[in-house]
Design a binder for these strands. Structure first.
Lengths: 333, 333
DNA sequence: TTGAAAGCGGTACCAT
DNA sequence: ATGGTACCGCTTTCAA
């Protein structure tokens, strides 16, 4: 069933049908309702490809993340998808993995499919070498980066200040007289580097010389993480607090401590559901996806509507206190 | 840049360009490479909408789940997306929520976008009343259901035997002389009903009369779950084992037990990463997504290639033993 | 208010 | 091996 057949059935031209489809006012109420009833009767749906061909858009937005099976990306994707939908766009999803070639391939795929815009989730899309693929993509389609930062024209970033939040964590720990703070991390994406740098700066600002950083194998399971951290704890028995770059790592650290009969203050990152599931429950930095994602989508929609928008928006983070570490703000002894 | 311009630049017809694009052998090697070089030089990409219009396909597969921010759906989506990609298809993602109207709207959206097939993840897509929307969708496009079962022509289901796995769990618990088994659940989708029914059948088969089932508010956070289960444990202090319909609920139950100083055998469901994160780590039923998803995609691709495929594939589950419950298979005292 | 017809950018049939 | 051209289903300009 196509527009011509519907036109014939209604005894009007295809133009009129098109006008009805697109809510063009230049159709009498009578004709309009008649056409609508026929369309309903025959369950007619305009061909999206044909519309796409002319309008040069199928109202699709490409979302790329490295791995949707990571709760952080899942949450972001979930929030973005729901926002996008509100504005009448659909989401095409790609999970790229961490391989640069695959990221490029996915980007190309989205461009080939002529998406209206591209949203990259996470700083994994900023390579530490060059970012030509993103530069190229941005020339053809707006690119939004969630919690990542690349300064390229046509690329818009909405992120939280991860470095600063880690600096604050160090400060909070030192306020409780912790001077041997272990930092557990794995992947050194831009974000990973920011956090690591926050750790180092934090130590420096607090006058601490000794860094105890533990690098965990990327993609390690909980037992591998536990073992790695346990080894580190044996190596640095003076450790009196632990921070991790992600909740999952923090939980591995938690298990390591349990194994060694330790119970040090512990701060995770992402405030994921893992943090709630942990026993004791995990104090964690909330990276504000709940605010960032809607803001990013709003920015994108404004952009698509031709408005002027900022190229960079940075939010502060928030420490969610649970059982593994509490600040004593009101230290009324 | 379109096919005509490229044709002009190459001094050949659009037909030839098209042939090169589609790897049609009827082009000399010389022409082909020349065309290819020009295409590369001008960074030409055939318009996907135009191709879609003619071929009536953009090689897109629609994936629907209720909530990608649930690790179960996230894992399934991740596995499906990666399999689909291998076969040269892209994924368009929709998160519908649990509202029937929204599910219908999403289904319509996918059909409007003329996806090549639709994959529904989870039994939440089977309504307990009627399923006309799925019936209608299946008439226009193949529908695959992951871990859900609806017997409708054009709908293909790949699932695991959840009911049976719960029956087995009851049996394993009774073998350890547990007779007061609490069952914690929330949403009663088809899957939820299957599991609940497995619990009841299991009890019956083991000659247990007393059912202790606890219904938790849908969407409850970990504290609400803990409170609900704690109340139930106070009401039924004779409880000597707990099963849950999902890992997250099991963890809530775990926290309730901790609160009350209890330490009963506990079995979760889904074998999600939550199970690893729990302390003590959670014994859980693996619902075999790792096998189901590739099988489902394979079935789909076969279907799209016109092969005959089964309408229903059922896999057995597997109990992953961790700390909260271990079977004593080799009970050599 | 309505309609005829020219595209949008490809593909595929039928010639050559 | 290559090309001319009708056509996919819709939108939009221009004319009536």
């Amino acid at each position: 069933m196509n527009i011509k057949e519907i036109a014939a059935l209604c005894d009007v031209s295809t133009t009129t049908i098109s006008r009805v489809i697109n809510n063009d006012p230049r159709v009498t109420q009578k004709t309009r309702s008649h056409v609508k009833s026929i369309m309903k009767k025959y369950n007619y749906t305009p061909n999206a490809f044909a519309r796409g061909l002319i309008l040069n858009s199928m109202r699709m937005i490409g979302i790329l993340c490295t791995n949707i099976d990571d709760p952080y990306y899942a949450k972001a994707t979930s929030l973005i998808e729901s926002e996008i939908k509100k504005h009448g766009y659909n989401s095409i999803l790609g999970c790229t993995g961490n391989n640069l070639e695959d990221k490029i391939k996915h980007l190309d795929l989205l461009l080939k499919n002529r998406v209206d815009a591209i949203i990259l989730i996470g700083s994994a899309f900023r390579e530490n070498t060059e970012n030509d693929h993103i530069r190229t993509a941005a020339k053809q389609s707006p690119v939004i980066i969630i919690n990542g930062l690349i300064e390229i024209p046509g690329v818009y970033c909405v992120l939280c200040d991860e470095k600063e939040s880690i600096i604050q964590n160090v400060r909070l720990l030192t306020e409780q007289n912790k001077r041997n703070i272990m930092y557990v991390y794995d992947v050194l994406t831009y974000s990973g580097l920011q956090k690591l740098s926050g750790y180092r700066i934090g130590l420096e600002l607090c006058g601490i010389k000794k860094e105890i950083s533990v690098s965990v194998k990327i993609g390690a399971d909980i037992n591998e993480i536990r073992n790695t951290v346990a080894d580190a704890l044996k190596l640095f028995p003076e450790t009196d607090a632990i921070m991790a770059s992600e909740d999952f790592l923090a939980i591995g650290a938690q298990k390591a401590m349990a194994e060694l009969g330790k119970n040090l203050p512990l701060i995770g990152f992402d405030n994921s559901r893992y943090a709630q599931c942990a026993t004791p429950s995990l104090t964690s930095v909330d990276n504000m996806l709940d605010s960032i994602c809607p803001i990013a989508v709003k920015l994108l929609i404004d952009l698509l509507n031709g408005k002027k928008v900022p190229s960079k928006i940075i939010m502060p983070t928030e420490l969610i206190e649970r059982e593994t570490f509490v600040t004593k703000k009101s230290s009324t002894v």
